[in-house]
Simulated scan of single mutants.
Amino acid sequence: MDDYDIAEHPDLRDPDWQRRAVKQARAGVRRQRRTGKRLAWTGVTLVVVAGAVFGLVQWGRSTSAHYDGSAPPPAEMRPTAPSVLPDIARVNLERPFDGTPAETWGESVDGLLAPPPGPVGGFSAAQVQTAVDQVKKVIHAARLDRRTIEGRDATAYVNLLAPSARADARAAIADHTSDSALTDVSFAAEGFKLLPANPRISGTITAAPGTNAGRIALHASFVVGYAFDPDGYTPIMSPSYIDVFMRHEVDFEMIVGSNYDKNDRGLWVTYSDYLVYSMACEPAKKGYLAPAYSELTTNGSPVADEAAIYDVTKPMPEVGDSCS
């Protein structure tokens, strides 16, 4: 019997089929959650890469193949700051992350931990480093750049992706009938802006051989904190009133092989799972971030392990009841 490669099936290589698969994946896997005085929201999406079926195979796995939370965390990743947000605490608007898990996090993607540059599969150390650097640029543009967050302008992020990946990313970001935009970028809701303090970030990036020749697989586990300007709102009873947190598990593939179409070469986001915590719920449903003080609630169930939200050495935590 001849060997049969399902990746060569004409349906999987058809651009129209790929676009439909992306839309169905984005639309069919949203989950909304609510918890206590703080709100949490989780979502996940999968993107088909250049007709490959690897993403569809991976769909049944609950976590990334690059991370299972079983290995003991490196010393650099062991939390030294508070492990959870305080219920009641004094807030210094000039230092809005004091007393929170983010008080010791970095202000740029340079603080993300990555292994020392080295060859991976058939790729040189220089090629791997280039791929890691591109992932860092994408994370900065999507999650830390104020032009993206406050200006709600995703141009810098989209332009860092492979040309063939850009149209679907733009469509998802523009869809504010759901939380779709949050999968790709962090947009502040209309009428809300950040304090002068920069967002804080903590996490890791790893690299491995890709699904096929000419591909480097990368995984980023990271969490970002945003401090919103209360704009005169009082009293601010806790950092949780103004600090919003996003936990991310994201798979990328860098396509570099010369046997791929020119527009397919570059960085693709193949899987993205995220959780938003301590935020306003209604804006999140439309793909925007807003601080919890604008929508305080006392309903819902607690997060099973709040500390896991901020600690990327732990798997993504489950949260409480639906945010409806």
Rank of each mutant, 00 (worst) to 15 (best):
D2F: 00
I6A: 07
A7R: 12
E8D: 12
D14I: 00
W17F: 11
Q18G: 09
Q18D: 08
Q18V: 15
V22L: 06
K23G: 08
R30Q: 05
R34G: 15
A40I: 01
G43W: 05
V49C: 15
A52Q: 15
F54E: 13
F54G: 13
S62V: 12
S64A: 15
A65M: 03
H66Y: 03
H66S: 15
H66F: 06
G69R: 03
M77P: 02
A81E: 01
A81H: 04
A81D: 06
S83P: 03
L85H: 04
P86W: 13
A89N: 00
N92P: 06
E94Q: 05
R95Y: 03
P96M: 04
G99W: 08
P101L: 10
T104Q: 12
G106I: 08
E107H: 05
E107C: 04
D110I: 12
G111Y: 11
L112C: 06
G121C: 01
G121R: 03
G122Y: 09
S124W: 01
Q127H: 07
Q134L: 12
K136I: 07
K137M: 09
A141Q: 09
A142H: 00
A142F: 05
L144V: 07
L144N: 02
R146T: 06
I149F: 00
L161S: 08
L161N: 05
A162D: 11
P163H: 04
P163M: 02
A165H: 03
A169S: 15
A169G: 11
A172K: 05
I173C: 09
T177N: 07
S178P: 03
S180C: 11
S180D: 15
L182N: 10
S186C: 14
S186G: 13
F192R: 13
L194G: 02
L194K: 11
A197N: 03
I201C: 01
S202K: 14
S202I: 14
S202H: 12
I205A: 08
I205L: 08
T206A: 15
A207M: 14
A207R: 14
A208I: 01
P209N: 10
G210V: 01
G214H: 04
R215F: 06
R215S: 04
L218Y: 13
S221E: 13
F222M: 00
V223L: 00
D229I: 14
T234H: 03
S238D: 00
R247F: 01
E249G: 14
D251R: 06
N259W: 04
N263V: 00
W268E: 05
A280C: 01
E282V: 07
P283K: 06
K286F: 05
G287Y: 05
G287V: 07
Y288L: 11
A290I: 02
A290H: 00
P291S: 10
P291I: 00
A292M: 09
S294W: 15
N299P: 00
G300T: 07
P302R: 01
P315F: 02
M316H: 10
G320C: 05
G320D: 11
G320A: 10
S322V: 09
